[in-house]
Design a protein around this nucleic acid. Structure first.
Length: 527
RNA sequence: GAGGCCGUAGCUCAGCUGGUAGAGCAACAGACUUUUAAUCUGUGGGUCCUGGGUUCGAUCCCCAGCGGCCUCACCA
């Protein structure tokens, strides 16, 4: 989209729409800068200090008019012109700092100082002092325009509240709403900490294909795309699992990947079509190893967050989420799938007759002809999962019915149970782990059974023969773990919508489906 | 995909049983050398999401469409 005269909903209107007068006023002011010999779109600035660093230069001994010199740059968020003195608050991604522009100190540049307006990006240098009310202030002796803003910024006190504009024009959200900037800075720190955590445990980070001829490793509908030169339909991956396991076969004993998966499913407060997963595999480990790893990682991250938000480390280990508190103190709660099932469904999950009766009473169609474990899974979702939302601590649910986990090793001495856990926090599935299946014959059989049970419209899944070949070459016994990064961030920064922790969540384009369809018909290549 | 709620000035929001739209901030003109969402005086600014319908008359009622949020379904 080109420069428009306004934000948001009207931006699809073209030149027939009259221009926003504020846009014209700003264009006129841009011309004044040019007439003053200033390029309103500046160049590289050296020797800059962050707003936070500049503020930290100020101490109890600092005199009013300041002593240490600082040079800062940022967006003008507040501007109070009181005649021969202008107070400006600029913001950068470390926070805000006040600038004092006094006519007596600026002299020749005073005319230009009066040209500055809200939203402009500017730099200032001067001494760090304070006002008589104690506000830390850079008393500027030099300044300049770094970039002219032609659009007026959102309201200075309320920020940008319109959720649609916040997601579609995230750049506005980021500079107008400091809380939103904070979310994404914290997100970056969380991901960085995960990498450090895993590197310390001798994992290496890898990248595996996002475009796959066979989309495997999870039960989900994939997106379809096409490679022109090979004239080949490809799927966007729904999981990196089958590739990461190939690396175990190759001898990479501890691998992880933090990257996007794509699932062609619905969108809601916990689901975005593209989402970020951390997936890892550790040779010679198992479910218990994954549980220890997950608990350490999540508890550490929660602890870091508590320290960041000013709570003493080692105290009450709780973080707010929505209208409640989640307590991340170790050890997390552990509960067996079978026990939860019995508690909330009311029968033993191994009791075929009782399960069937319960399912029929529930109104599940064709219950009698359905796989027993699938029925168990349905009843679990209906009764036990909602109960998990009431826990105020993270809960490991472990030992799943084998029929629900085709890529998982069966429990020693109990082939009906798969060595799998899911970690639930505030009712959300946050992590998922397994003792991996490394027997190629069993793997092939479970794949086949899974494919046979698939509905026609879902059967984009195919047998991944090369993966079976890989297992035949020998994969070490291993533990595998997946953690939903977006959801982890949601929990740690207290946002109940996944769109608040994804910079650019998927939005229907303006103009609706018609435009999307037109684009579909357009050739995708110039060649 | 289904249901509920929503779309009003650049931004944040009011707008009664239907009578032709308001505030704050922002903008424009002016005053002001320690403000803190600065203050004070004055001025301008609207396709009330779009298109139909009902009505003497629609921001308001009805229908359809577009977009958003929430709940549900599929999924993690």
């Amino acid at each position: 989209m080109r420069h428009g005269p306004t934000y948001g909903r009207c931006m699809h209107d073209n030149e027939t729409h009259h221009e926003n007068p504020q846009y014209r006023d700003r264009l006129a002011r841009l011309e004044k800068w040019r007439q003053a010999g200033v390029d309103p779109y500046g160049r590289r600035l050296d020797g800059l200090m962050s707003a936070a660093a500049a503020r930290n230069l100020h101490t109890a001994e600092t005199p009013h008019d300041g002593s240490p010199q600082a040079r800062v740059a940022g967006r003008i968020l507040l501007l109070r012109d009181i005649g021969k003195l202008i107070f400006i608050s600029i913001g950068d991604w470390t926070g805000k700092i006040q600038i004092g522009l006094a006519k007596q100190h600026i002299a020749a540049g005073w005319e230009q100082a009066k040209l500055l307006e809200l939203g402009d990006i500017a730099w200032f240098s001067g001494k760090v002092g304070h006002t008589k009310t104690g506000e830390v202030t850079i008393w500027a002796d030099a300044f300049g325009l770094a970039a002219k803003a032609l659009l007026p910024p959102p309201e200075k006190f309320h920020g940008l509240a319109d959720t649609e504009l916040r997601y579609r024009q995230r750049y506005l959200d980021l500079f107008a709403n400091p809380d939103s900037m904070e979310v994404f800075l914290v997100r970056s720190h969380i991901v960085q900490h995960i990498r450090t955590f895993l590197h310390e445990r001798q994992f290496i980070e890898v990248e595996t294909p996002m475009m796959q001829a066979v989309a495997g490793g999870a039960a989900a509908r994939p997106f379809v795309t096409h490679h022109n030169a090979l004239d080949l339909n490809l799927f966007m991956r729904i999981s990196p699992e089958l590739y990461l396991k190939r690396l175990l076969v190759g001898g990479m004993e501890r691998v992880f990947e933090i990257n996007r998966n794509f699932r062609n499913e619905g969108i809601d407060t916990r689901h975005n079509p593209e989402f970020t997963m951390m997936e890892l595999y550790q040779a010679y480990s198992d479910l218990a190893g994954m549980m220890e790893l997950t608990e350490s990682l999540v508890a550490e991250l929660a602890d870091k967050r508590m320290v960041q938000s000013g709570k003493p480390a080692g105290g009450e280990a709780a973080l707010p989420y929505g209208d409640r508190m989640i307590n991340y103190a170790r050890p997390f709660e552990r509960v067996e799938y079978r026990e939860l099932f019995a508690r909330h469904v009311g029968t033993d999950m191994g009791d075929r007759a009782a399960v069937l009766a319960r399912a029929t009473a529930q109104g599940i169609e064709n219950a009698a002809s359905m796989d027993h474990d699938v029925l168990v899974g349905l009843l679990f979702e209906q009764h036990a999962e909602p109960a998990l939302a009431t826990y105020d601590r993270p809960v490991f649910v472990y030992d799943y019915p084998a029929g629900l986990c085709p890529l998982t090793r069966r429990k020693a001495g109990n082939p009906a149970i798969a060595e799998r856990f899911e970690l639930y926090v505030a009712g959300m599935e946050l992590a998922n782990a397994y003792t991996e299946l490394n027997d190629p014959a069993v793997q092939e059989a479970t794949f086949s059974a899974q494919l046979a049970g698939q509905k026609a419209e879902d059967s984009m899944a195919k047998m991944d023969h090369d993966f079976i070949t890989a297992l035949q070459a020998g994969m070490p016994p291993a533990g595998g773990l997946g953690v939903g990064i977006d959801r982890l961030v949601m929990l740690l920064v207290n946002r109940t919508s996944i769109r608040d922790v994804i910079l650019f969540p998927l939005m229907r384009p303006h103009g609706g489906r018609a435009i999307a369809t037109e684009q579909e018909d357009t050739p995708t290549s110039m060649a």
